[in-house]
Structures are given as structure tokens and as C-alpha cells.
């Protein structure tokens, strides 16, 4: 224990817990690649109404979101969508 503390190394138990928590979230969500592709298409459709986006470099993924209470981690959908240009007209329409 003392050595572990001395080197400030994470215990292997903690490593296992951290890995499992993230792993089980993606296991439990069990989102098929086809579904992810459909979600991506729909997001593109909606966002494109308001701005020009780079669909080739857009990424979506499901990962663990650290909640307010540290114990429970909720699955979250992360989307990274590069914007090329914001349509001026649609902006006014809003």
C-alpha cells in the first residue's frame, strides 16, 4: 500500500473499475452501426437547414458522461460537427 501511495499509481482495482464502467455503458446501449448511420443522416438533415456543415468530417459516438453524482454514469451521444458556413437567411428566419 505504502509503495502504491508513494508512486501515486492507480491501483489495478481502480483501473479495472474505470474500464468496466465505460465498457458496460457501450455494451448496454448496444447501438447498431446501421442505427448510428441513420442518426447521423437525420442530424445532418436538421442542422443543414441552418448552417453548412462538413459531413465528411462529422463524427457521432456514444460514450459515458460523468454525471453530477460520481457514482452513476449515463450514456451520452456526442456529436462533433464542423461548421463551414452559417446561412444568413435561415438565421433571420429563426
Amino acid at each position: 500500500m505504502r509503495f502504491v501511495n508513494f508512486f501515486k499509481r492507480k491501483s489495478s482495482c481502480q483501473v479495472a473499475k474505470d474500464r468496466l464502467k465505460i465498457l458496460l455503458i457501450s455494451d448496454r446501449v448496444n447501438c447498431s452501426p446501421e442505427m448510428m448511420e441513420l442518426i447521423k443522416k437525420d442530424i445532418t438533415k436538421v442542422i443543414s437547414k441552418y448552417m453548412k456543415i462538413d459531413t465528411d468530417h462529422m463524427e457521432i459516438q456514444i460514450c459515458a458522461k460523468k454525471g453530477n453524482n460520481t457514482k452513476s454514469r449515463m450514456p451520452a451521444l456526442y456529436a462533433s460537427i464542423p461548421i463551414l458556413d452559417i446561412h444568413k437567411q435561415s438565421g433571420q428566419a429563426l
Binding site: 500500500m1 491501483s11 489495478s12 482495482c13 479495472a16 464502467k21
Partner: peptide, 14 residues
């Protein structure tokens, strides 16, 4: 005890 195995509480928690 050494911190090298998950405890029963850890497993139940997960």
C-alpha cells in the same frame, strides 16, 4: 486489501 482485485462491493455496484 492490496487494491489489486475488485471487492464484492465494487462488483455489486457495477
Amino acid at each position: 486489501r492490496r487494491g489489486d482485485m475488485m471487492s464484492s462491493d465494487d462488483v455489486v455496484d457495477i
